[in-house]
Amino acid sequence: MQKGRVPGFKRERIELEPCSICAGKAVVKGLFYELVCTGCNGSGWVVWGSKLVLSSDELVTQLSFKLQHAQRQIAALKGLPLMSEPQSQYERSNRLGAGGTNYTGD
């Protein structure tokens, strides 16, 4: 038996794109009121390229992966450390002191 990756241990990341019918809004405009989009089953997301609709449990998992990735990107762009160190409050200005100066609470 050959060693290698065993399928099923990690969830596959599926690339998603906004639905082309509702433009990612999950609803379409009816004559008098908004209707649930039938192209994406009211989620606003479809599989990239194939336009397939995911089941609700798979969609929740994939959207969670997408959210976690976006949160990591935001943290990287802000330049904030993931773990706050005690000296970090001395190095950055928090503008809480008199005249907008740094206040450390000492």
Rank of each mutant, 00 (worst) to 15 (best):
residue 1 M to P: 05
residue 3 K to I: 07
residue 4 G to Y: 02
residue 4 G to I: 04
residue 4 G to F: 07
residue 5 R to Y: 11
residue 5 R to Q: 14
residue 5 R to T: 15
residue 5 R to M: 13
residue 6 V to E: 14
residue 6 V to C: 05
residue 7 P to F: 07
residue 7 P to T: 02
residue 8 G to L: 13
residue 9 F to M: 07
residue 9 F to I: 10
residue 10 K to E: 12
residue 11 R to E: 15
residue 11 R to W: 00
residue 12 E to D: 01
residue 13 R to N: 08
residue 13 R to F: 09
residue 13 R to G: 00
residue 13 R to E: 13
residue 14 I to Q: 04
residue 15 E to V: 01
residue 16 L to D: 03
residue 17 E to L: 00
residue 17 E to W: 00
residue 18 P to V: 02
residue 19 C to K: 04
residue 19 C to P: 09
residue 19 C to F: 09
residue 20 S to T: 12
residue 20 S to C: 06
residue 22 C to H: 08
residue 22 C to E: 02
residue 22 C to F: 12
residue 22 C to W: 12
residue 23 A to D: 12
residue 23 A to L: 12
residue 24 G to D: 06
residue 24 G to M: 01
residue 25 K to S: 08
residue 25 K to A: 06
residue 26 A to K: 15
residue 26 A to N: 12
residue 27 V to A: 03
residue 28 V to M: 13
residue 29 K to I: 08
residue 30 G to Q: 04
residue 31 L to Y: 08
residue 31 L to G: 04
residue 35 L to Q: 07
residue 35 L to C: 11
residue 36 V to A: 05
residue 38 T to K: 11
residue 38 T to S: 07
residue 39 G to K: 05
residue 39 G to R: 06
residue 41 N to Q: 12
residue 41 N to H: 13
residue 42 G to W: 12
residue 42 G to D: 03
residue 44 G to Y: 05
residue 45 W to N: 13
residue 46 V to F: 01
residue 46 V to W: 01
residue 46 V to N: 06
residue 46 V to C: 08
residue 46 V to D: 04
residue 47 V to Q: 11
residue 48 W to C: 11
residue 49 G to P: 01
residue 49 G to R: 13
residue 52 L to I: 02
residue 55 S to F: 00
residue 56 S to Y: 09
residue 59 L to A: 13
residue 60 V to I: 02
residue 60 V to S: 02
residue 60 V to K: 08
residue 61 T to G: 01
residue 61 T to I: 11
residue 62 Q to Y: 07
residue 64 S to F: 02
residue 66 K to V: 01
residue 66 K to H: 08
residue 67 L to S: 09
residue 67 L to N: 03
residue 68 Q to F: 00
residue 69 H to A: 14
residue 71 Q to R: 15
residue 72 R to M: 07
residue 74 I to R: 15
residue 74 I to N: 11
residue 75 A to T: 11
residue 76 A to T: 10
residue 76 A to M: 02
residue 78 K to G: 15
residue 78 K to I: 05
residue 79 G to K: 01
residue 79 G to R: 04
residue 82 L to E: 15
residue 84 S to Y: 05
residue 84 S to E: 14
residue 86 P to F: 12
residue 88 S to T: 10
residue 88 S to H: 14
residue 90 Y to Q: 10
residue 92 R to T: 10
residue 92 R to D: 07
residue 92 R to K: 09
residue 93 S to Q: 10
residue 94 N to H: 06
residue 96 L to T: 03
residue 96 L to Q: 13
residue 96 L to C: 13
residue 97 G to R: 07
residue 97 G to L: 11
residue 99 G to H: 13
residue 100 G to Y: 03
residue 101 T to S: 15
residue 103 Y to G: 00
residue 106 D to K: 03
